[in-house]
Simulated scan of single mutants.
Amino acid sequence: MKLNFKKTGAGKPLIIVHGLFGSADNWFSIARELEKDFTLYLVDQRNHGDSPHSEDWDYSVMAEDLKELMQDEGLSSAYFMGHSMGGKTVMRLALEYPELVEKLIVADIAPRFYPLHHQQILEGLNAIPLGQLKSRKEADEILAKYINNPGIRQFLLKSLGRDENGKFIWKINLPVITEKIANVGEAIESEKPFEKPTLFIGGENSDYITEKDKEDITRLFPNSHLIYIKNAGHWLHAEQPAAVIETVRAFLNT
């Protein structure tokens, strides 16, 4: 699949992959700094942002999408950074095609299985009647019945767009995501580890990477280390962007 992406900066290529319900736009504030050191590819994964929709949606096909992007761009290898679902996508790519990945950064996700925990978000998104929707404010009011946090609602509603006739549409492929949400929690496994330099970055206030996860991380990524960003939860790049930028630079420039 030909993914939508935004290319900026100069230097070694760094491909950044967003998480569930997100898009390349989530990384613009980070990109403004990192583009000084790297050629950035900010990617919309399939069924997200401005990339095409598909019934096929799992980590194998999402990793293949990144491989195709590299081939189209003439890249023999690159640095990769992925957050949450994007972190699992880049882990899958590194384990399947280690020659493509020079260094790997995984933001606030482990290789393990995660149980379903997005049902309330999906209920809220599916409750918004796009055909009758008159404004984004109305959409927010409906979503507020399911999600109290206004920051999370604002993030989710970034995927609300308009078609050529001005009618509201979802940029995300909501039906497929709703049907196949269990795929997001799938574990990443491989008989052969990825042995190149790898950095796992956790949010200090997040429970996505726990002490128990270190065994799986070390087994699959033996040349890795794990650090936690202080005063950050799961959305560490939005909550502590300066710390994330400093951490990424230090790792990739070493």
Results as ranks from 00 to 15, higher is better:
Val106His: 04
Ala107Tyr: 00
Ile109Met: 07
Ala110Gln: 04
Pro111Ile: 01
Arg112Val: 13
Tyr114His: 06
Pro115Met: 05
Pro115Phe: 01
His117Lys: 15
Gln119Tyr: 08
Ile121Pro: 07
Leu125Cys: 07
Pro129Lys: 00
Pro129His: 07
Leu130Asn: 09
Arg136Cys: 01
Lys137Leu: 15
Lys137Thr: 13
Asp140Cys: 10
Glu141Val: 02
Ile142Thr: 06
Leu143Ala: 04
Lys145Cys: 11
Asn149Gly: 04
Asn149His: 14
Arg153Trp: 09
Gln154Cys: 09
Leu156Pro: 02
Leu157Tyr: 04
Lys158Gly: 04
Ser159Ala: 14
Leu160Glu: 02
Leu160Gln: 00
Glu164Pro: 09
Gly166Arg: 13
Lys167Gln: 15
Asn173Gln: 10
Pro175His: 03
Val176Thr: 09
Ile177Leu: 10
Thr178Leu: 04
Glu179Ile: 01
Ala182Asn: 10
Ala182Trp: 12
Ala187Lys: 15
Ser190Thr: 07
Ser190Gln: 07
Thr198Leu: 05
Leu199Gln: 06
Phe200Trp: 08
Gly202Glu: 02
Glu204Cys: 01
Ser206Asp: 06
Ser206Thr: 03
Ser206Trp: 02
Glu215Thr: 11
Glu215Trp: 00
Leu220Gln: 02
Asn223Ile: 04
Ile227Gly: 05
His234Thr: 07
His234Asp: 05
Trp235Ile: 08
